[in-house]
Design a protein around this nucleic acid. Structure first.
Lengths: 282, 282
DNA sequence: TTGACCCAAATGGTAGTACCATTGTGCCCG
DNA sequence: CGGGCACAATGGTACTACCATTTGGGTCAA
């Protein structure tokens, strides 16, 4: 099964794809190191014997992948870049959102990853890191106990701790995957710091987690992680209950405003409105 | 820290980005359902009051993200698509490759994920799935014992089993992340089936794993997983030894052929060569 | 009636040109 | 010596014209 298609539609349209592929190959092949620049668009135009639009489209694709960065002006051009984890995060977040993945599944995944991280961190993390985590968690608790603290600030701190925690596994893959997941679902974590009860419980639990980790007590650490996600699940469940009501209102609201961008206008003469508000600057 | 920049360089260049953002918002906002099509490029040109090139660049970006699919001809246009997990995989693979992540770290990550999956699969998987895994692993073993079997075929089967295994966790996130990781590192798994010894050991181990899983014996299952990755680590290590030699040869070879694409030609009059072999079809 | 064929319209793909905006460099003048 | 200005390189945008592909309908013949 899964044979190579015998007749691939050779070179059917899409020269830009071809160009992008060749440029990508040159980059990943190490022909152009990060920091160096590709030839200018007009040079590439000559090299590939094609129009400038094709080159620009190809560069757009590479830019979208995060492989290059484009700068205007003299000494401008397309510079090869280190790919940022944010690119992966964005891609993943987009996918998960579109798949309407249940928060429960993401939470389960994160929990199992956290347990793995804890296991590795206990073995591999330096004592300095362990201390940093302990202090960070205490700082979080201090912040959480002040009622005026903004939940976003707390969420940010939580995210920071999570990343530090992941880094302690000494395995960058964990750090990256965790970062990618967090990027798309920060709203969940923020919600955890909305309610005063959850806020305090979560912060205290962080302190316990850090202490257990520092003590090398995997069992207690694992229990703490379990408790963390128990809180998160509770919180998400209670939020979902509210959100359901909000969504119902929102949906009936959206049904009223018929701002569609599609082609389904059988009888309507004046399709999409699309007020261009940002465009009077030309 | 991490304040929102007070003065964002408002609308500096890059109208295509603006267009892409608005279209993306329309898509993720559900204004255009998958399967439906956006207006044609020429219509969008009017809607956004911009040149067609800008529209095309924006569409290229969305296409790169996997959100749309573009078809030529009458009734052609840009159709909103379900994002494929392959997009995430590609993004992740590109990132990992560029970060020169050590195989060891990826393997560790996969191992810990496999253990989590096993835990969940024992609880959640249906008996039909468990049986399917058992039969699949036996089929793999049968194939592995025939010396003539192609290693790629075995690798493909292995990949299939892995995916089935991940699916048994009943959590799609595991399946997707596993799929994404495999896509970028299939060569490792293929290597496992190159040597006759590793081939047989791995296949037998798969059978044991499936049996343990079906029996609900988490301990034995976990041990099998450990053994699997022990084999993989051994295999990768022995491959790396060979690869090191090859790389040295390859590097000195690359140093000879000076086909550079960068701008560093202080004295050279005729920069990049770039024979266009695919282009005589116009 | 049915089938084959062809042509027109819609749409994406490519080429080319002209011009604008931005930015670094270096010359020129005070 | 220093500030400012002109210039050149480069990306960003607009517009036009034309090509290639695909669909659908219309026409003509069997």
């Amino acid at each position: 099964m899964n044979e190579i298609p015998l007749f691939t539609p050779a070179r059917v349209g899409r020269a830009s794809e071809d160009v992008a592929l060749q440029l990508e190959a040159a980059i990943v092949g190490g022909k152009v190191a990060p920091g160096q620049s590709l030839p200018s668009e007009r040079e590439l135009q000559n090299v590939f014997k094609t129009g400038r639009g094709v080159i620009r489209e190809a560069l757009m694709m590479l830019r979208q992948k995060g492989m290059i960065e484009v700068r205007k002006g003299a000494k401008g051009g397309t510079y090869v870049k280190q790919i940022d984890v944010a690119n992966v995060s964005e891609s993943l977040a987009l996918f998960l959102r579109q798949k309407q993945v249940e928060p429960r599944h993401v939470i389960d995944f994160r929990e199992s990853m956290d347990r793995s991280i804890a296991m590795m961190a206990i073995v591999h993390a330096s004592s300095a890191e362990k201390q940093a985590l302990a202090e960070g968690s205490k700082a979080l608790l201090a912040m959480a106990l002040v009622p005026e603290t903004d939940q976003h600030e707390l969420g940010e701190k939580d995210r920071e701790l999570n990343l530090l925690f992941a880094r302690m596994s000494r395995n960058p893959v964990f750090e990256w995957v965790m970062g990618a997941l967090q990027m798309g679902f920060s709203s969940q974590d923020y919600a955890l710091y909305e309610d005063a009860y959850f806020r305090e419980q979560t912060a205290r639990n962080w302190v316990d987690t850090a202490a257990a980790l520092a003590a090398g007590d995997l069992m207690r650490c694992s229990a703490c992680i379990g408790r963390h996600y128990l809180l998160l699940r509770d919180c998400v469940a209670s939020c979902a209950a509210q959100a359901d009501v909000a969504e119902l209102l929102d949906r009936s609201d959206a049904a009223m405003t018929g701002t569609s961008l599609t082609k389904e206008y059988p009888d309507q003469a004046d399709p999409p409105k699309y007020e261009r508000k940002e465009k009077e600057c030309l």
